[in-house]
Simulated scan of single mutants.
Amino acid sequence: MKYTKLGSTGTTVSRLCFGTWRFGKETSGVVETDEDQAHELLDAAWDQGINFIDTANVYGTPNGTSEEYVGDWLSDHDREDLVIASKVYFPFGDGGPNREGLGRKHIRNQIDGTLDRLGTEYLDIYYIHRWDENTPIVETLRTLDRLVEEGKVNHLGASTMAGWQLTKALWKSDVEELERFEVTQPLFHAAYRDDVIDYLDVCADQDLAVCPYSPLAGGFLTGKYERGDDGPQSVVAPDDSRASFDDRFDDFYVSARGWHVLDEIRAIADELDATPAQVALRWLIQQDQFTTIPIVGARTVDQLNENTGAVDIKLSQDQHNRISEARYDEEGKRWGHRT
């Protein structure tokens, strides 16, 4: 495993982060990863040198299950060897007027619950999971700043939002002399970049670390899916793959653009004697405008071991460009979702 500094912070993390959003999660009645499987995956990640673990208060069924799984595993390890991230925003539990969003009351309640479930006194990174249009950003930032002062949080992070919202939050932190967001977590992969370019431009300008979620497009860019006969969104899925039980998969990840990018990724994988998953992850790692640490969410140890192989290959500049350019047709027009 190779390591890097987390943006402009002094924290050192592995070039891949292990994501735990599947831990205890029920999808269409199927538990994606139970506790024994979760601990086996965490052991494998640790054995591969991954020291960066990502979770959230709402991951799992019921909410908090993922944090509990991670906390049970963490109790057998030296806390100082791990970099742990969690999040706040979405409704927790049965809901209620103060059980969601980024107001002071909800953040205060959730940080204590998160720390208790993880069995730790502090988080290395605390993300706002989304932007809260109903709470002034200064209230959120002052609350988070106080958590840093109290030693409950080391660094602040921001997940998916508009580029102008991230800019506004960074500006407010600057003028109010509050802790700023140092880490971001957008949806970002080889077939989905132009859609978040404004956000990524802010990250580059402000030297923010980028930790993309769904870096393999929900598994689509692993190459295990094949085209169907009914248009760009038609896909042939292996049994037990995500597409076989997630009704949103076709609409969310499968597109004409995706197939073109995947074709190029497959070709380069053949050239490097690597797998499509490794090439897709390496394309992210080799972004040169900001430090990128993809969040991998493998369902099996074999998948995780395959993913970690991304740190051992290298794309030439030409190969990197070919993947980027596969998003566009010969006239320079970006491929769409259905055409």
Rank of each mutant, 00 (worst) to 15 (best):
K5C: 02
T11V: 15
T12H: 04
T12K: 11
G19L: 08
G19P: 00
T20G: 01
G24T: 01
G24Y: 01
T27E: 13
S28H: 06
V30N: 13
V30Q: 14
E32P: 00
E35A: 03
D36G: 07
A38M: 10
A38T: 11
L41S: 03
L41C: 04
L42R: 11
W46T: 15
T55F: 08
T55S: 13
T55Y: 03
N57F: 05
Y59V: 06
G60N: 08
T61Y: 00
T61V: 08
P62S: 07
E67V: 11
V70Q: 10
G71S: 12
G71I: 12
D72M: 04
W73A: 02
D76F: 03
D78G: 10
R79W: 05
E80N: 14
S86T: 12
F90W: 14
P91W: 06
F92A: 05
G93E: 10
G103I: 01
H106Y: 14
I111N: 05
D116T: 14
Y127L: 09
N134G: 15
T135F: 07
T135W: 04
P136K: 00
L141A: 07
T143A: 03
L144D: 00
R146G: 04
G151R: 06
H155M: 06
A158K: 10
A158I: 01
A158D: 04
G163E: 04
W164M: 06
L166D: 00
L170Y: 01
S173W: 01
V175N: 00
T184H: 06
L187S: 12
H189N: 14
A191Y: 05
D194A: 15
D195W: 07
Y199S: 05
Y199P: 01
Y199A: 05
L200N: 09
V202M: 08
D207V: 13
D207W: 03
A209R: 02
C211A: 13
P212A: 07
Y213I: 05
L216C: 06
G218Q: 04
G219Q: 07
F220P: 09
D229E: 14
D229T: 14
D230M: 05
D230E: 15
P232S: 08
V235N: 03
V236W: 01
S241W: 02
S241A: 11
S241M: 06
R242H: 12
R242W: 05
A243V: 00
A243P: 00
S244R: 03
D246G: 05
F249I: 06
D250W: 01
D250H: 13
D250P: 05
D251C: 01
F252G: 01
Y253K: 09
S255I: 10
A256L: 04
A256Y: 05
W259I: 09
W259T: 09
H260C: 12
D263I: 10
D263E: 15
I268E: 03
A269C: 07
E271T: 10
D273N: 13
A280F: 08
A280W: 08
L281T: 09
R282N: 15
R282W: 09
T291M: 06
T291Y: 04
T292G: 08
I293E: 10
I295H: 03
A298R: 02
R299H: 11
V301P: 04
D302T: 14
N305S: 12
E306Y: 07
E306G: 07
A310E: 02
K314Q: 14
K314W: 07
L315A: 11
Q317L: 08
D318C: 07
D318R: 14
Q319Y: 13
Q319K: 11
I323F: 11
Y328R: 08
D329L: 03
K333G: 02
R338N: 10
